[in-house]
């Protein structure tokens, strides 16, 4: 569905069901250089299991117009503008990587409006390698290679995807290659410069799930510990043999863990 903010068209994928503001609203936020398709199976599953899902394309990403917002804090404020336009209900926020920082920051800004929070591939600090930042700044395609290499766990480099016939590394790289010049640079810079995760986590009041990959080289599980220590109600689930691209590498397990968490959190 299209949402218009400041005369710009913002796209949110609803997973094959029309958006229904009367159902629990579940917002999925993608990571750097990607778009709503990274949440493909999860979007379809939850939209057919009682939720109104909005897998949002951030400005300048996927089907959304505009240019990327270059700070996590500003993107969080922008997200609430979008959500206020579609409903006044509370929301469930989930984000992956950069999206997890946006979800965390957004939940901290309006804790009373957030019923549950899911942070996938999250860390207290997402320090981006200087070579990756440099390549992204130059719009050099080696940046896509670095993210693909480091993002997928070593086991996923061999494949064995749950979706028949799909080669994860090729799909991940192809999606990154679709983003417009400057988008990846802006996203990675926003991640790199964000230092507010600890403070944000102190303000969260809703149940929070940290969903991590044990072989994640971009946001290793140990880097999420300070967040857990500051979150009021949290649980951590670490999937085995998984890198940073958790919902691509283990889509079914991701659905199961999120589903079980939400049943508990919202009961």
């Amino acid at each position: 569905m299209d949402i218009h903010i400041n005369n710009l068209r913002i796209f949110a994928h609803t997973g094959g069901k029309p958006f229904d503001p009367n159902k629990p609203i579940f917002v999925l936020i993608h990571g750097a250089g990607t778009d709503h398709t990274f949440w493909g199976l999860q979007t379809r599953y939850f939209s057919h299991h009682g939720y109104s899902v909005l897998a949002i394309d951030l400005p300048g990403h996927g089907r959304s117009e505009g240019v990327p917002i270059d700070s996590i804090e500003e993107t969080a404020l922008w997200l609430w503008k979008v959500l206020d336009q579609v409903s006044y209900r509370n929301v469930i926020l989930a984000g992956h990587s950069m999206g997890s920082l946006i979800a965390l920051e957004a939940a901290s800004k309006r804790p009373d409006d957030t019923d549950a929070l899911i942070l996938v591939g999250v860390a207290e600090r997402v320090a981006v390698h200087s070579d990756l930042l440099a390549a992204a700044k130059k719009n050099d395609s080696t940046a896509f290679d670095m993210i693909t290499d480091w993002g997928f766990g070593q086991k996923s480099h061999l494949g064995g995807h749950q979706s028949p016939g799909l080669w994860m590394l090729g799909g991940g790289r192809a999606l990154l290659a679709e983003c417009s010049a400057g988008v990846l640079d802006s996203d990675l810079s926003a991640c790199h410069s964000y230092i507010g995760a600890i403070e944000a986590s102190k303000k969260i009041s809703c149940p929070t799930l940290l969903l991590l990959g044990d072989k994640d080289r971009m946001t290793p599980p140990k880097m999420s510990v300070p967040l857990k220590e500051n979150l009021r109600i949290s649980e951590t689930k670490v999937l085995s043999d998984v890198g940073h691209m958790i919902m691509i590498e283990k889509p079914n397990e991701t659905i199961d863990v999120m589903d079980e968490f939400l049943r508990r959190a919202l009961s």
């Binding site: 016939g165 080669w167 090729g170 192809a174």
Partner: peptide, 21 residues
């Protein structure tokens, strides 16, 4: 789809630098 066939498909996609087969 079939698990044995899927291995062949994925291997071909990997060898060709594709997204799927």
């Amino acid at each position: 789809s079939n698990p044995t066939v899927s291995v062949f498909e994925e291997r071909m996609a990997a060898l060709e630098n594709g997204v799927g087969a």
